[in-house]
């Protein structure tokens, strides 16, 4: 296997990077961890003549809590940076756990959160839990900066709202919130190095046994990560019980529109949504952010 020839740029500042993205236009690709981009290059799926590496932008690597904003995750943070972040362990262990379910250790050491999001594959493991936790992202262009709720970031398989000839995803923000529990359950056909057949993330806000609110996000069962609004509506304000969660599972599978592929049939995936939703809810309700 080989990579096509390209020029390599490693801008020293974000502004410089944004200018390069704008100036080089569609012939350039932004390189973060490379675990997706290099594979696409090897398969000939993209053939840029220039690669803009974010390698030098260390400011995009931090995970910090900013009062008033929430937990701010730099887009260049690797999956293992999430796995090992004491801040996330303390506030949203579910995000660390979701990151740990992704690929394998070596890939987690290179692959970045930003790359995972921009790559926008429907079975990605991070979007469901980040959406369940109401995350939003910042896109910076040469002259612009905008924030986008993550749930409206994805527009289709491998498609998102980022302007590829002007913008760079710089950060993911998990806002301070009332949620009392969250978790991501991944169903895959091997325990490591396998894409998810179905993934379900939930975040719940409990008041005693009452479900004040919940967010349920389904992965790999729709062209984009999708909220299970029907299930959320059904749960709102109710006292939780196994029966109620089972009903929510049924409702969630009505929100999915999976395809049949090499990893599983649509029929199987729908039923997995049901089972995983029910289990994820119980876990988040009874165990907190896990």
């Amino acid at each position: 296997m080989f990579l096509p020839d390209f020029d390599y740029h490693a801008p020293e500042t974000l502004a410089e990077a944004c200018d390069l993205v704008r100036d080089l236009g569609p012939s350039a690709k932004v390189l973060a961890g490379g675990t997706d981009l290099l594979i696409k290059l090897k398969h000939g799926l993209v053939t840029p003549t220039a690669v803009i590496s974010l390698k030098a932008l260390d400011e995009l690597k931090t995970i910090t809590h900013v009062p008033g904003r929430g937990v701010v995750i730099g887009a260049r943070a690797t999956h293992n940076d999430l796995v090992n972040s004491p801040l996330l362990h303390e506030r949203f262990l579910s995000v660390s756990e979701a990151a740990h379910k992704l690929a394998n250790n070596q890939v987690r050491n290179r692959g970045t959160v930003g790359g995972n999001l921009v790559n926008a594959i429907p079975s990605a493991d991070l979007p469901p839990i980040l959406i369940a936790l109401d995350a939003w992202i910042t896109l910076v262009g040469s002259n612009t900066s905008r924030t986008v709720p993550l749930h409206s970031f994805f527009t289709g398989p491998s498609c998102c709202v980022i302007d590829p000839v002007d913008e760079i995803l710089t950060e993911i923000v998990l806002p301070d919130q009332q949620t009392t529990g969250s978790t991501y359950l991944k169903f895959a056909l091997r325990r490591s190095g396998a894409l998810s057949v179905t993934g379900v993330a939930v975040a719940v806000t409990m008041d005693g046994d009452t479900i004040v609110d919940s967010r349920i996000c389904l992965g790999a069962v729709f062209p984009v990560p999708v909220r299970a609004n029907d299930a959320e509506d059904l749960l709102r304000g109710k006292t939780w019980s196994d029966e109620l969660l089972a009903e929510a599972g049924e409702a969630a599978s009505c929100c999915a529109l999976p395809i049949t592929d090499i990893r599983g049939t649509a029929e199987y995936r729908l039923d997995l949504v049901r089972v995983l939703t029910k289990r994820a809810l119980k876990r988040a309700i009874t165990e907190g952010h896990v």
Binding site: Y8, A10, L31, G34, T35, L38, I39, V51, S53, K55, N80, A103, N104, N105, Q106, V107, N109, R110, G193
Partner: peptide
Amino acid sequence: GDCGSCTVLLDGIPVDACLVLALE
């Protein structure tokens, strides 16, 4: 990046050398 045969330590961290540009 599926098999790990090319694992090396990059600044102490194991990575697949098949998924790292030399320039990186």
